[in-house]
Design a protein around this nucleic acid. Structure first.
Lengths: 214, 214
DNA sequence: GGTTGAATTACACAATCGTATAACAAGAAT
DNA sequence: ATTCTTGTTATACGATTGTGTAATTCAACC
């Protein structure tokens, strides 16, 4: 008998995590069609058969990977809130800037996200994942807006959140797809001005960049 | 010998157009991976081999199809300007609404557009097509903004255009991907309010819906 | 320290992919 | 009518796809 490939047993969580990460890496690099079962397995350091041991199908893996991606993007945007200033306007300003700056705004991230858009339209499970994460992000934004010292109706609060989310998403998209079309810091500055204009507050003045770094 | 499939000879333009349309249809329906050479040929009513007669490769066909798609989207947005009102604010308002309404804003169109995003990042020719069409749209918007009766600097004009384009794109995206998450007419209304807030004008009042229809 | 269960590898299979090349046939030219 | 050009079909090929199943080997358990 020829020598069989040696291997180590790992926990289910670890293996699933590795496979998900490998899948996302490959989609980011080469699009959905580059994330083949064999390529994912190789990237994760296992053999192709193992994928079907942890996921019922490739479609299953795809769904889980998308969920992980969306989680990560929301988390990265929210990270700036931890340890930041307490002032409501400053918190909102920091959140807005973080949402259109790396690592959230990033060419690779956009390509990654776009790869799943069609599946979201077509697959009900994917759409559910998308809706939940989209609303989570928007509600987080709405919470920040609601904390501002200005009285508004619930209806206005909702449309303000949708509008601000729109600017953020749009600028995130354009700045990420065509980074060379904008000057350094131009997109974050425009984001602050626009969101401020929509909410009728001076967000630019409220912005407090992270000073923990030298 | 068995009967060979009968066929008619067509002009080069007609055949190329049919193949491009078939490719876009299939991408819209089933994503990039559904647009195989065989499926495109069948949809266009020809046999697979003919594709390689009109396009040097499938990649070639893909690029041409993307160019056609982008053209169509810009054209659809601009169509509302023809035969519309002369007032600068009304023209801008109508353009904004058209950009976030069907047929520009549409689940199929978004899926279609997203399918190409990754290729845009990776392929230089695709990126060139994207940049040209993105700037064409933004410049059209900037022209409408510049026509407003308000004095602004060139720099402000540019950032205003980028900001307004951002809101439009973001709302276009969200409204198209999750149409059921918004009330009828909610997205256009928010678009008018937001763009108006950014430019500090009352766009809602300026909006003049098409009255040529009964 | 065997024994056992399950994680992992290995292999096979049918389907489908893009591409290359040769055979045919439709319609214009002569 | 016959020839010629070339648009079009037909067919083949190797590579790659997702998946199903059997063979193995690791690591925990008694």
């Amino acid at each position: 008998m020829a020598d069989r490939r040696p291997y180590r047993r790992e926990s289910e969580e670890r293996r699933r995590e590795d496979l998900i990460a490998a899948a996302l890496d490959l989609v980011a690099e080469g699009g959905l069609h580059a994330a083949t079962v064999r390529a994912i397995a190789e990237r994760a350091g296992v053999t192709p058969g193992l994928i079907r041991h942890y996921f019922t199908s490739k479609e299953d893996l795809t769904r889980v990977a998308y969920q992980r991606l969306m989680e990560r993007m929301t988390t990265d945007s929210a990270a700036v809130l931890l340890g930041g200033p307490d002032d409501a306007m400053a918190r909102l300003a920091n959140f807005v800037v973080a949402s259109v700056s790396p690592p959230v705004a990033d060419p690779v991230a956009v390509g990654l996200w776009a790869a799943f858009v069609h599946d979201v339209r077509r697959d009900a499970a994917m759409r559910e994942i998308h809706t939940a994460n989209y609303l989570a992000f928007r509600n987080m934004l709405q919470g920040l807006i609601a904390a501002l010292p200005r009285p508004v109706s619930d209806a206005k609060l909702r449309s303000d959140a949708i509008a601000c989310n729109g600017v953020i998403d749009g600028l995130w998209l354009e700045g990420s797809i065509l980074p060379e079309a904008f000057a350094l810091g131009e997109i974050p500055a425009i984001a602050l001005t626009s969101v401020g204009a929509i909410l009728n507050i001076d967000l630019v003045a409220a912005y407090q960049p992270d000073r923990t770094l030298p």
